Deep mutational scan, measured.
Amino acid sequence: ALNRGDKVRIKRTESYWYGDVGTVASVEKSGILYPVIVRFDRVNYNGFSGSASGVNTNNFAENELELVQAAA
């Protein structure tokens, strides 16, 4: 299972961040479909780089994520 702070690569092909590595911000335990919230260094097309207006978190299912580096 994934944990907060883990570095993960995104495998959801239609995602803006496909192939990117993000950090797990939190994992919901309530049984929702996309329980893993991942935070990225770059914002998506809703904002400009360096601006706070873009979105830099997204929810994924565990099977859409590949663990790159476990949290220390």
Rank of each mutant, 00 (worst) to 15 (best):
I37L: 15
A71K: 08
V55W: 05
V21M: 05
V43D: 14
I10T: 01
V24D: 00
A1W: 09
F40Y: 00
V38N: 00
Y34L: 09
G47Y: 04
E14L: 06
G19Y: 04
G50V: 06
I32V: 11
V38M: 00
A25L: 14
G47A: 06
A72I: 13
N44P: 04
Y45A: 15
V36A: 00
L65F: 02
S53H: 11
N58P: 03
E64M: 02
A25E: 14
E62G: 06
S49V: 08
I37V: 13
A71P: 11
Y34I: 04
R12S: 06
D20M: 07
R12F: 03
L67N: 02
I37F: 08
Y16W: 08
S15D: 11
L2V: 08
R42G: 14
I10F: 00
Y45I: 15
A61E: 07
L33C: 14
L65W: 02
K29T: 14
F40H: 02
T23L: 07
E28G: 09
Y16M: 03
E64P: 01
W17C: 07
N46T: 07
T23A: 03
N59A: 10
L33D: 13
V55D: 07
G19S: 04
G5F: 05
F60M: 01
R12I: 07
L65P: 01
F48V: 14
N63P: 07
A70D: 10
R42F: 04
V27L: 08
A25W: 09
E62Q: 09
S26H: 12
D6W: 05
N3D: 09
R12D: 09
L67W: 05
A72W: 08
R12W: 06
V8R: 00
D20N: 04
N46I: 05
N59P: 10
N46K: 02
N58T: 09
V27I: 12
E66C: 11
G54Y: 04
R9Q: 05
G50F: 04
L33N: 11
S49L: 11
V21Y: 04
T13I: 14
N46Q: 10
Y16I: 04
S49C: 15
N56Q: 06
E64D: 07
S49A: 12
S30L: 10
V38G: 00
N63C: 14
N44F: 13
D20A: 05
E14H: 06
W17I: 00
P35V: 11
N3Y: 08
I37E: 14
A71W: 14
A61R: 09
E64V: 02
A25P: 05
S30K: 11
F48W: 06
T23N: 03
N3Q: 13
F40P: 01
N44D: 15
V27F: 09
Y45G: 15
N44T: 04
N46Y: 08
E62W: 09
N56E: 07
